[in-house]
Design a protein around this nucleic acid. Structure first.
Lengths: 395, 395
DNA sequence: TCACTTCTGCCTTTCAGTGGACAAAGTCCG
DNA sequence: CGGACTTTGTCCACTGAAAGGCAGAAGTGA
């Protein structure tokens, strides 16, 4: 079934039904400026394609009841969010409502064969539950630089073995449906733009602080990827001339000062030195420390942990202040595991940004934590592929 | 004469004729995918509107000779580039070739009434020479934040008295033609995108180092202005925690370290302290020093001046390295008076950026000096308004 | 039950665009 | 120099799509 719309009107109708939910024919006619005959024609075609279906009658507005149209209830999109240490897979309907969501810990360094197999396995479990039969498209987010056009990772630092592996090709053959592959940060930004706080904002930034640090850039409602697809790669901006050495070879990179890895490293140091009893206890219990432990310590009132977070917030704030002056966004979202550090971090970032950027740029600039959390990635992935499938941009 | 095209085809034809020059009807037919009859129809309409005219016959391609079409020779656009210390006015034909260009020193702090009058006076002189009778549109660049939609400056730091002055309204009434107003840096970026090194680059940055420091951002061939129009305002990014106090109140701003004003200030200090005999002599000759004097000193082999430029280049490079990582542009252009400092500056900037940004972003990233120099602004201004007039985006 | 409203499907009218035919204007070759 | 072939521009009949009128279906309220 080559269920692809073939014109702009159909694309508009599909996106409207996806984002605003079911709508009566009469309402659709008022929103999109089309004659009744044209509207009926295009809707008929979409019904024939199997992308739209009628769903009973609307309540009367004083006369004959109008027929309700919606995205076909059998439409299914798959979102796959591969992180450095986890895999998330979700299945949504045509309105991008999550019907099923599974997650599993995984080490991306195991390579594409193993990791993609695990993702397919999760999808298999969801299918076994009956949430999906046929799949209309799948979006995939990967934790590193991706060539969007080619659908493959390019020299990813934390994903050895993935370099130039044809993820798009492999997965579209496996799933027999359209597939798009993008950077996980971009995918999260799309998720926030679709279902999160950025819904009404055209230009915004999403800063993800996970194992590494990246930034999704949305311009005019669309992901900006730069000329070689590496836009938003802010983890290696230098913030401290005398900082620690980073995996990239330079010193003082943002990521080396406050990524998940850096935070864990500093936490271990603090525990061993005896400056933080809380972290020392955790370390002896579990044998390792993560960003979550630091968050827990700070919440429990541990001074050293609090100081670590404030310090990190200052570094993020410094970089963000520059980017805000440069990009003048309407919103900044902080996301990623480390975002669990919560309001201590947020307060520090806000204070630095508001102090260092010009009033014209910060005057009406909310800086917020992601509301979607772990689902932003998978939702964004389905949004990515649904935009593609609904646009009729043929492969 | 409401000479506005009314559809996309006409806009495409006009832009093609503007950017690629006169073309035979046959060639136009091959480039835009239109049937011969439709093409003839649209061209006829454009001729009726007075925007296009025929210009003789092309050489034969083996059969009947084709008729050449071009943008009407009577079409005139005006570009006005108001800088902190100068006014440039140029008149171009419909292909944006400069027919006349006048420049005068001026102090923007004299306020809108005086400055805009001076600009109109320059335009009057050009008209007196006969380069223009009727004017189809005018673009204006101003040295500060501009609300593009409203066509007026918003809280400009170096333009007291201009705040919310309705430049667009005033000038369009005066000139009786469509007018657009934008930040001078954006306008320069458009100029480089039209006639400079950025012609084939979709995403690039133009860093202007003049009295202040600003950055024009081009995304997908169009100026990105941000949500409140202040995007690219990089002059007040902090680069040195212990730097001098800036006019904005913060310390260590890029602009306070290496703007034209800062450079002149440092030059005077160097001259008075006796460390630079060259600058001392210049100072005693003219009673003041500018960026040009520093450039001259460096060229003459003055060690202190060279050091000042290298130091400045390092600061610019630091900021630029961050922006390159973030934005992943295909080109960076250095422009402004201070760009006269030339290759010493450029070499320093390149060295810092290439060292500090990731290979994926810098792999194919030229960093160059502006070729257009002083004309980038006026050309960009005419490009701005011609895009508007040719698009049929009615006022 | 009746007057009125809203909504949809059908049908006719209208119109812009296409593509072919034809004439005009050249080239090329014997 | 003339005829065959090529390219270009215009004219026109045809086509397909969109708009809008009309009528019937389906509702409300008195």
């Amino acid at each position: 079934m080559a269920a692809r719309p073939d014109n702009t009107h159909q694309a508009r109708l599909l996106r409207l039904l996806r984002d605003e939910g079911a709508r009566s024919r009469a309402e659709l006619g008022e929103v999109v400026q089309l004659s009744r005959s044209k509207l009926a024609l295009e809707l008929d075609r979409l019904v024939t394609l199997g992308l739209v279906e009628s769903a009973g009658l609307a309540v009367s507005r004083g006369g004959r009841r109008s027929g309700i149209m919606r995205v076909a209830s059998r439409v299914r999109f798959v979102g796959i969010d591969i992180g450095a240490t986890s895999i998330d897979v979700a299945v949504t309907n045509g309105e991008l409502e999550v019907l099923g969501h599974l997650s599993t810990p995984a080490d991306v360094r195991d390579g594409p064969a193993i990791i993609l197999d695990q993702a397919l396995e999760l999808l298999g479990k969801l299918r076994a539950k009956g949430v999906a039969t046929e799949i209309n498209g799948a979006g995939i987010g990967l934790p590193g630089p991706v060539s969007f056009r080619e659908g493959m990772p390019i020299a990813p630092p934390i994903m050895p073995g993935w370099d130039r592996f044809p993820v798009l090709e492999a997965m579209s053959q496996e799933l027999r449906c359209p597939v798009l592959v993008d950077n996980d940060v971009n995918v999260m930004a799309l998720g926030e733009s679709h279902a999160g706080l950025a819904r009404s904002v055209d230009n915004f930034l999403l800063v993800k602080i996970g194992t590494g640090i990246g930034c999704g850039i949305v311009v005019n409602g669309e992901i900006y990827r730069g000329v070689s697809g590496s836009a938003g790669d802010i983890g290696h901006i230098r913030v401290d001339d005398r900082g620690p050495t980073c995996s990239c070879g330079n010193t003082g990179c943002l990521e080396a000062l406050f990524g998940g890895t850096a935070l864990a490293r500093d936490a271990v140091v603090a525990a061993r030195s005896g400056r933080s009893p809380f972290l020392a206890e955790r370390l002896s219990e579990t044998g390792a420390l993560t960003a979550q432990d630091v968050a827990a310590a700070a919440t429990a009132g541990d001074a050293v942990a609090g100081q670590m977070i404030r310090e990190g917030g200052r570094h993020i704030g410094k970089v963000l202040a520059s980017l805000v002056s440069f990009f003048n966004p309407g919103l900044v979202i902080i996301a990623g595991e480390v975002a669990d550090l919560g309001h201590i971090l947020l307060a520090q970032i806000r204070s630095v940004v508001y102090q260092r950027s010009l009033p014209l740029a910060t005057g009406n600039l909310p800086i917020v934590l992601s509301e979607l959390g772990g689902t932003a990635g998978v939702i964004g992935a389905t949004r990515l592929i649904s935009d593609h499938v609904f646009s009729g941009t043929h492969a």
